[in-house]
């Protein structure tokens, strides 16, 4: 049996909104490590990895490891029926082919339950070896989203280059070119407004803006985003979910033929 009570129910709504366009179906796994998901998009270019640790739940009960296959669009439809301030509880009985989402208003004057059919999904998990990244950039997530959106009106791909100068986002399209450079900036009022660049080696990688724009849907989950980049390796784009875990996207680069 499984019962997970999340006081910040709005967080689960945001998680679904951030991944439902990238991935159709996924297994949610529940274990002592936490409530997690790993799923690849149908073109096998991006993987999303989510972890919500048990400490973040008011009640985290699963007496054995459970994997629940869900259609993410259907799950998002159900979660849209929850208020942003609602407490969300997930419940599943052993051997059941359904999961129940219970929504409680903060004042407890409205309680709703929605039962969703589970599905069998054969998914293999990817192993991500530990990598030493050439550069790690931490910046405000809204700034990163803005840059990806702006550049996608000019071109289809973004070149992300980290040098001593800073981190450069470049694109090229039929109408012209665009370059945005963000320099390290730690002289800010709030730590989440800082841009911090750790560079071991200069690195330059090209990615499809369609994917970058898709993963910036996770922006409401975190004030900051971390880009981990190494030549010839997928980028890791991480949004930390305060005190609970993270949502990470692994995105394969494009190469010049």
């Amino acid at each position: 049996m499984l019962e997970l009570r999340l006081v910040q129910g709005g967080l689960l709504k945001k998680v679904l909104e951030s991944i439902k366009d990238l991935v159709n179906d996924a297994n949610f796994d529940c274990s002592a490590t936490g409530f997690s998901l790993q799923a690849m998009d149908s073109s096998q270019v991006a993987v999303v990895a989510l972890l919500l640790r048990p400490e973040g739940f008011e009640r985290y009960w699963c007496d054995r490891n459970i994997s629940m296959g869900m259609n993410l669009n259907n799950m998002a439809k159900m979660l849209k029926c929850a208020g942003n301030d609602d407490i969300i509880t997930l419940k599943a009985e052993d051997g059941s082919d359904t999961v129940t989402f219970m929504f409680e208003s903060p004042t407890q004057d409205k309680i709703a339950d929605f039962e969703m059919k589970l599905m069998d999904i054969n998914s293999e998990r990817l192993g991500f070896p530990e990598a030493d990244y050439h550069a790690i950039v931490r910046m405000p997530s809204s700034e990163f989203a803005r840059i990806c959106k702006d550049l996608s009106s000019i071109g289809n791909t973004v070149v992300i280059s980290v040098t001593k100068e800073g981190v450069r986002f470049s694109t090229r399209g039929d109408i012209g070119t665009a370059n945005v450079v963000c320099r390290q900036n730690t002289a800010v009022d709030k730590p989440e407004e800082a841009t911090i660049i750790e560079m071991n080696e200069p690195v330059s990688l090209t990615f499809g803006l369609r994917y970058m724009n898709s993963l910036t849907k996770a922006t409401p989950l975190s004030n900051t985003v971390t880009l981990s980049l190494s030549s010839g390796l997928p980028a890791v784009v991480e949004y930390r979910i305060a005190e609970m875990g993270y949502i990470r996207f692994y995105l394969a680069p494009k190469i010049e033929e």
Binding site: R125, L233, Y250, A252, I255, E257
Partner: peptide, 14 residues
């Protein structure tokens, strides 16, 4: 010409 790489080129399935 740019080619989009797939994640399978980098990672192994468990």
């Amino acid at each position: 010409l740019q080619t989009q790489l797939r994640l399978e080129a980098f990672y192994t399935f468990n």
